[in-house]
Computed example of a mutant assay.
Amino acid sequence: MVDDGSHAVPDLTVPLIGHDEALPAFVTARSQGRLHHAWLITGPKGIGKAGLAWRLAAALQSGALPADSAGTDLFGEGAPTAGFVLDPGHPAVRLIAAGAHPGVLYLSRSVDAKTGRMKRDIGVDQVRRLGPFFGQTATDAPWRIVIVDAADELNPSSANALLKLLEEPPKRALLFLVSHVPGRLLPTIRSRCRTLAIRPIAGDRLTQWLIAESGHAVSADDAALLARLSAGAPGRALMLVREDGATLYRALTGLLSAGSGIDTLMILSAGLAAPKEETRYRLFLTLLTDFLGRFVRFLATGETDGLDADDVALFQTMRQRGGLDRWLELWEKTNHLAERADVVNLDRKQLLIGLLSDFTGLAA
């Protein structure tokens, strides 16, 4: 069952990339009959943590990962790095893909009925649903599996409610806690979980994967740029491909490098503020805050590791237009406004014009 819409379930037929350490650790624990009741899946956003949780749930519920197996049915060519493949025709896999499996419950932030917007956290009432869920006996599902995405968004009350379940886990119960920043979780929650850490994927490997996944529709230069912008996270890289992130990023750096006039700034802001451009608008804010974060680190340390030659050249120019304190102030302002845009009904066009005017004024 999906707590807030079946859109949360990824395409289970798409092979995973990476997870080279996490997958074998889980498969080994299962094959040796040492499957822990709670798993903390950590790594950057877009790295594939929730995707891994859904696939492991599907593998367990469909019997593709029995306790006496090394799990080779799950891996292409018998190697974890070759991918993670499930039988899409299996009834359990089909139910999970539809968000309708009675033995799988997905918890995430829900929509506030009064405002129509996403709530800021996962509430205690949602976590309390787990008690009746784990108590079900009317289905043939071999496991009761809960995916919490993301556990970082639990509020104090819901975190304590979850802790009680972790302390006294029901039989045949399994919890996957997705966490972008595990340090935000209660230490007592972390201590009761086994950790599956997912590492960023090397740039060259991700670049080649993006080219292949796009059917060679993405150029090598664009794929390399998007792999770098995604910080090794394949989910984020694919989203950048879908939303033409390379063009957005070049528009951003063009504004900052050329000190473009008000007409260019207005056209870009108006286009991104259109209702149908919700995803690209949020992506642009993310690209902007990430770019400024890299620039602030460059100003503070002078280090160029992980930067390409074009970014370094632009940073060298921008550093002449303002000191660290001023750029740090603008970076913090951008982060604050980007976060508020999720909660408060801010005028997108005016927000972008205000931010970009500040940045282009300094960068010109």
Results as ranks from 00 to 15, higher is better:
W327V: 04
A82H: 13
G235D: 00
D342A: 14
Y106W: 11
S6Q: 15
L287A: 03
L16Q: 01
V181R: 13
G63Y: 05
L165M: 12
R128N: 09
E329N: 05
A313L: 13
D140H: 15
A197G: 11
R321C: 10
P15E: 04
L337M: 07
E243F: 12
P66S: 02
A173N: 06
L248K: 08
L165S: 07
L324M: 13
R199G: 01
E21S: 11
G232I: 00
R94T: 12
D342N: 13
A274S: 13
E329G: 05
S69F: 01
R120P: 04
I198R: 00
G48Q: 01
R172Q: 12
T360I: 11
T304H: 04
L210K: 04
V241K: 02
L162D: 05
A202C: 07
S158Q: 01
L229W: 08
R228M: 05
V241E: 02
G302D: 00
H90T: 00
R348W: 00
S260K: 10
D3Q: 14
A224C: 03
E329D: 08
P66K: 00
D244R: 13
S6E: 15
I267R: 14
G235I: 00
R109N: 00
R129H: 15
I267T: 15
A92Y: 00
E277P: 05
G131R: 10
T137H: 12
L288I: 06
Y281P: 01
V124C: 05
F133T: 06
A159V: 05
E168L: 08
P44T: 10
L268A: 07
C193M: 09
P170M: 06
D121C: 03
D244T: 12
A223H: 08
C193Q: 06
G43C: 03
V343C: 02
V148H: 03
R194D: 14
L163S: 08
A224I: 01
G116I: 07
H180F: 10
G51I: 01
Q126N: 12
E21D: 12
V27I: 09
A98D: 15
K119H: 05
T289C: 08
M1I: 06
T28M: 09
L35Q: 02
P88H: 11
M239H: 15
L265N: 13
A82M: 10
G261Y: 15
A338W: 04
E278A: 09
D11G: 04
D325E: 15
N155D: 09
A270I: 09
I17R: 02
L56P: 00
G215F: 09
Y249W: 13
L346A: 11
G43K: 01
P132N: 05
S214T: 10
R250D: 14
L174P: 04
D358H: 13
T317Y: 10
P44M: 10
A100Y: 08
H336T: 14
L210D: 02
T317I: 11
S269A: 15
E332S: 08
H7Q: 14
A22V: 06
T13I: 07
A159H: 02
A159K: 03
L196N: 03
D263Y: 09
A227P: 01
R228A: 05
A300L: 14
